[in-house]
Simulated assay, not measured.
Amino acid sequence: MTQDEIRRRVEALGEWFHDMDLGGVRTAPNHFLWGYPEAKFKHFSHVVPADLTGKSVLDIGCNAGFYSLEMKRRGAARVLGIDSDDRYLAQARLASEVTGLEAEFRNLSVYEVGALGERFDLVIFMGVLYHLRHPLLALDLIHEHVAKDLLLFQSMQRGATEAMTPEGDYPFTETAHFDEPAYPKLHFIEHRYSNDPTNWWAPNAAAAEAMLRSAGFAILEHPEQEVYLCRRVEAPWGAGAAYPVKGPRA
């Protein structure tokens, strides 16, 4: 395609959230975070394996496919990006076509990942958790159905940036720890935040880390605020969507 053809097709797909360079055409040149997400990825790209030869990758909430295509650049044998927005998926397919990096893109919700029937060496779950009405359920489903080894995770965080590790148990009469700013907390957004009706939850740092552990993901790297590289491990007893019970059986 000529640059003019690329520009016409980029413009025809409407507003882009991923600012990418497609054959000399920037997809979101006026993005309030210029160069996002590439500019952000540079700060933590070193924690993702540089060589993904023979590996499979699932990109949940892939948007226009930046991370999917980056994993193809690192040699991943199979990359599947899923999103529930058809316009974003069309953008991702165009980016794949222009760059020549072959990835598959499919309309699928994170709550439907069990339908894939396969596990992936690397699951990317960036910028999705806070848009979900049922965030811990999503992490449980990822662990139970699609994660084989690594999880690259990011969520918007608000509140305390230090991560408090609570005691294993507290007496019923002890309540002061709930008022500690660094206690794991999810801030519920009933209406809108940043004029976005899809923002439902904003965890503090401790809550994000505790939720990962609770779903069965051990944190390996924390290269920058909000970003974690995790490894799938055995989930704590009682984790999961149905009748969860914390801790060992009585």
Results as ranks from 00 to 15, higher is better:
residue 2 T to F: 09
residue 3 Q to S: 14
residue 8 R to V: 06
residue 10 V to N: 01
residue 12 A to W: 04
residue 17 F to I: 12
residue 20 M to T: 06
residue 20 M to E: 12
residue 21 D to C: 14
residue 23 G to H: 11
residue 24 G to C: 08
residue 24 G to D: 13
residue 33 L to W: 12
residue 34 W to C: 10
residue 41 F to D: 09
residue 44 F to S: 06
residue 45 S to C: 14
residue 46 H to N: 05
residue 47 V to R: 03
residue 48 V to K: 04
residue 50 A to G: 12
residue 51 D to M: 00
residue 52 L to V: 03
residue 55 K to M: 10
residue 56 S to Y: 04
residue 56 S to I: 07
residue 58 L to A: 00
residue 59 D to A: 02
residue 61 G to P: 10
residue 62 C to I: 06
residue 65 G to M: 07
residue 65 G to I: 03
residue 66 F to P: 00
residue 69 L to C: 06
residue 74 R to W: 02
residue 80 L to M: 06
residue 80 L to K: 01
residue 81 G to D: 07
residue 84 S to H: 15
residue 90 A to V: 09
residue 92 A to L: 05
residue 94 L to R: 01
residue 96 S to T: 04
residue 98 V to E: 01
residue 100 G to R: 03
residue 101 L to C: 01
residue 102 E to W: 07
residue 107 N to L: 13
residue 113 V to G: 08
residue 120 F to M: 01
residue 123 V to Y: 09
residue 130 Y to T: 05
residue 131 H to C: 03
residue 134 H to D: 07
residue 135 P to M: 08
residue 135 P to W: 04
residue 139 L to N: 04
residue 139 L to R: 02
residue 146 V to G: 08
residue 146 V to E: 02
residue 147 A to H: 08
residue 152 L to A: 01
residue 152 L to D: 09
residue 156 M to Q: 08
residue 163 A to G: 03
residue 163 A to T: 09
residue 163 A to P: 00
residue 164 M to E: 12
residue 171 P to S: 08
residue 174 E to R: 14
residue 178 F to I: 09
residue 180 E to T: 00
residue 181 P to R: 03
residue 182 A to I: 01
residue 184 P to R: 02
residue 185 K to E: 00
residue 192 R to Y: 13
residue 192 R to A: 10
residue 198 T to I: 08
residue 200 W to R: 15
residue 203 P to A: 04
residue 205 A to C: 05
residue 207 A to H: 04
residue 209 E to C: 12
residue 212 L to S: 03
residue 217 F to G: 05
residue 218 A to Y: 14
residue 219 I to R: 11
residue 223 P to I: 09
residue 224 E to Q: 15
residue 225 Q to K: 15
residue 225 Q to T: 15
residue 228 Y to V: 03
residue 229 L to H: 13
residue 229 L to Y: 12
residue 230 C to N: 10
residue 231 R to G: 11
residue 233 V to D: 12
residue 234 E to Y: 13
residue 236 P to I: 13
residue 240 G to R: 08
residue 241 A to E: 06
residue 242 A to H: 10
residue 243 Y to L: 13
residue 250 A to H: 11
